[in-house]
C-alpha cells in the first residue's frame, strides 16, 4: 500500500494519529516513519507538521530513523534486571556485533530496550517484532537469533 492509501483508511481526525503512525511504520520495510509520511499524515489530518513530529518523537515505539527488519526489544524492568537481563543484553550485543540502540550491518536486526513487557512470570524476556520470548538464557538467545537469520536466508 502506498503512504496515501494507508493514511486514507483513517478518518481525518487527530485522534487517529497514533494509529496512522503505527500503520505507516509497520508498512515500512525499515520499520520507521519517513518525513514524507509524516507530512502526508499532517496533511490528511489538517494539523501542523510539528504536531505529528512531536507525537512521533514522544512515543518510544515510533522511529524516525531507519531500523532493522526485526526489532528486538529487551525488557529492562526491575524484575528482568533482578534475573540478570544484563547478561542477556551482553549476549545479544555479542551475537549481533552491535550496541544497544544500533542496527546490524545487514539491516536484519535493531536492538532496543523496552519498558516492562509484562512477562515477569517468565523473566527475563524480550520481544522480536510482535513475538514474545521468555526465560531467556545466553544459549536461547543464540538459538533465536540464528532462527531469524536462517529464515532471512531462505
Amino acid at each position: 500500500m502506498s503512504t496515501q492509501e494507508i493514511i486514507q483508511q483513517f478518518e481525518p481526525k487527530q485522534h487517529n494519529l497514533l494509529h496512522i503512525l503505527h500503520a505507516l511504520q509497520d508498512a515500512h520495510p525499515e520499520n520507521y516513519i519517513t518525513e514524507e509520511a509524516l507530512e502526508a499524515a499532517a496533511g490528511h489530518l489538517g494539523v501542523t507538521k510539528s504536531t505529528v513530529y512531536g507525537v512521533a518523537r514522544y512515543y518510544t515505539m515510533f522511529s524516525l530513523k531507519p531500523r532493522g527488519k526485526h526489532i528486538i526489544r529487551v525488557c529492562a524492568s526491575p524484575v528482568c534486571e533482578l534475573l540478570h537481563v544484563n547478561d542477556i543484553i551482553a549476549a545479544l550485543e555479542e551475537e549481533l556485533s552491535i550496541k544497544t540502540g544500533e542496527t546490524t550491518k545487514d539491516g536484519l536486526f535493531t536492538l532496543e530496550l523496552s519498558e516492562c513487557l509484562g512477562q515477569c512470570q517468565e523473566a527475563p524476556s524480550m520481544m522480536i517484532n510482535d513475538k514474545i520470548f521468555n526465560n531467556l538464557t545466553s544459549a536461547r538467545i543464540r538459538e533465536v537469533i540464528q532462527s531469524f537469520k536462517d529464515e532471512a536466508r531462505k
Binding site: V79, G118, Q119, C120
Partner: peptide, 11 residues
C-alpha cells in the same frame, strides 16, 4: 495501558 513494572494482571 498496563505498564507498571512487575505487573501483568490486566494482560
Amino acid at each position: 495501558d498496563e505498564g507498571e513494572p512487575g505487573t501483568f494482571k490486566d494482560r
